[in-house]
């Protein structure tokens, strides 16, 4: 009898704490990328305003710039709280297609936007390219691997961290390698030699940056916008010449099923406004509207 009680107790306790199934696919596990905007209290104006949440699904690379844009947008729209979901664009596209309550989608490439358009989440041709981005090779501050040129990425024994091919920046990284093998300065085996050094394919660009900044990897490929502001001091950079560099185009669009269609459009317009573009430029993005 005592045994029975005891064993039941053990089981109960274990079952309480155990998670047998894998983690749910929450937006992302990386603190760096999930640093959601601390939602400020709705602004108090003389007239009582209705509190509205605007859900913006944005590529992880937009984290810093969009948090700032969100603050400006909230200041101009009393009662509105911009709630961000930052993750790899491919993840966001899936979430939207599975019915996540998004009002705006800002993707880091066309492919993921097309996927949402195809599933009916965004009306074709309502998407607009709002910003461009470049790739850059980053390495830990102390550069123990002594990287000075792009050719150094083939050094045997190097540890490189890429984003997975499904992540826009990962696809852009592969495009870059494809361009390089056509260039005699790199040689036909360049791509294979670089890929041999990849030890991990991360699920978003911020995870790549974090692992490089921590010194766990010798180098990684991220966007120039990722090494702006406070993050710039954490890593060293190797420029990628224009001839090889893949220019990433970011499309943005309101979600068709949004209950706040007008507000969603207003957010898109704000991002495309001179103010929004200037703010993105400040974060090392390439503005599209002058």
């Amino acid at each position: 009898m005592k045994l029975k009680v005891l064993l039941r107790l053990i089981l109960m306790m274990e079952l309480l704490a155990a998670g047998c199934a894998p983690q749910p696919t929450a937006p992302t596990q990386f603190p760096a990328a999930t640093a959601a905007l601390p939602t400020p209290p709705p602004m108090n104006t003389s007239a009582p305003v209705e509190a509205i949440d605007l859900n913006v699904f944005a590529a992880a690379s937009l984290t810093n710039a969009f948090e700032e844009i969100g603050q400006h947008f909230e200041a101009q729209h009393p009662g509105v709280t911009v709630v961000f979901n930052f993750a790899g664009s491919q993840q966001l596209a899936q979430q939207i297609n599975e019915g996540a309550p998004a009002d705006v989608f800002a993707s880091a490439n066309r492919t993921q936007m097309e996927i949402v358009i195809k599933a009916g989440g965004v009306v074709s041709d309502t998407q607009k390219t709002f910003v461009r981005n470049r790739l850059v090779v980053v390495f830990p501050q102390d550069n123990q691997a002594k990287l000075t040129t792009l050719q150094d990425l083939t050094k045997p024994g190097l540890k490189l961290v890429f984003a997975a091919k499904e992540v826009p920046v990962g696809q852009y990284s592969f495009d870059l390698l494809d361009k390089a093998i056509a260039d005699p300065a790199f040689g036909a085996t360049y791509k294979d030699d670089v890929l041999k050094n990849v030890v991990s394919y991360e699920d978003n660009v911020k995870a790549v940056l974090t692992k490089v900044a921590l010194g766990e990897a010798d180098a990684g490929i991220v966007y120039t916008s990722d090494v702006s502001g406070a993050d710039a001091g954490k890593v060293g950079q190797l420029d990628i010449p224009d001839a090889l560099n893949v220019i990433a185009s970011y499309p943005i669009a309101p979600i068709q099923t949004s209950k706040q269609a007008e507000l969603a459009q207003a957010f898109v317009d704000w991002v495309l406004s001179p103010d929004g573009q200037a703010l993105l430029a400040k974060h090392n993005f390439i503005p599209v509207v002058k």
Binding site: P22, Q23, T25, Q29, F30, G88, Q90, Q91, A93, Q94, V161, A164, K165, E166, V198, V199, S200, Y201, E202, D203, A207, K211
Partner: peptide, 23 residues
């Protein structure tokens, strides 16, 4: 976070599910 994601080396069933969810 600790082991990363590399098929055949560090990609387990749960990490494959997490990335497979997207692709």
């Amino acid at each position: 976070i600790f082991a990363g994601n590399f098929p055949g080396r560090t990609q387990t069933m749960p990490t494959a599910i997490y990335l497979g969810f997207e692709r």
